[in-house]
Amino acid sequence: MVLPTSSARAHTAAESKFRLSYPLVSSRAVRVVALDAGAESTVRRVAELSWHAASFYAAEPSWNADGLEGGPFNFTLRELVGTPALLNDVLLGVDAVIMVATSDAGTKAAAAIGSACAIRGIMTAGIIFGGAASRMTVSALRPYAGVLVVSNDEYDLEAILSALRA
């Protein structure tokens, strides 16, 4: 005999209260990297909100002017307070990296981050804020970001971090 609770008919509002309830992993470790100066102001604003496991950085192209001779993990980012941070350390224990850009100035940083994340199996996403200039940025970031969002709404970074439980 098939009881109502052992069929799809159990998917009612009343039956929902019998779903198992237990704490999920509370947060996911996410790193947000501003790839250029324009992106940094957005990242700084969002960084001031309350997050469980999100950390915020900026790319500093001048620090990596010589390329990536030591491999992508030796690429150096900057914490928003100014302290240098080696990409190798930034990516330890990370679930996802979100790169934020307003131009294609950060392509080298995106390449380093994308390559390092690919080696470690870390998901990457890119958010591009801006108008017509964003089209070039899309092409520049595409090889290094698993997903791309072209947005005219700064709130999107916040929405994505919240949705990911960062």
């Binding site: 799809a8 998917h11 009612t12 509002a13 039956e15 929902s16 779903r19 999920l24 996802a96 979100i98 998901m123 990457t124 996403a125 698993g146 997903v147 969002v149 947005s151 709404d153 709130y155 999107d156 929405a159 994505i160 949705a163 990911l164 439980r165």
Partner: peptide
């Protein structure tokens, strides 16, 4: 329908490939 009449989105575990859904909700 198996999610229940109104899915409890406080419990979902979205990933970066869900970014279309995330952006649509935000809009």
């Amino acid at each position: 329908e198996s999610m229940g009449p109104i899915v409890d989105r406080t419990k979902e575990r979205l990933v970066t490939t869900d970014v279309g859904i995330i952006k649509a909700r935000a809009k």
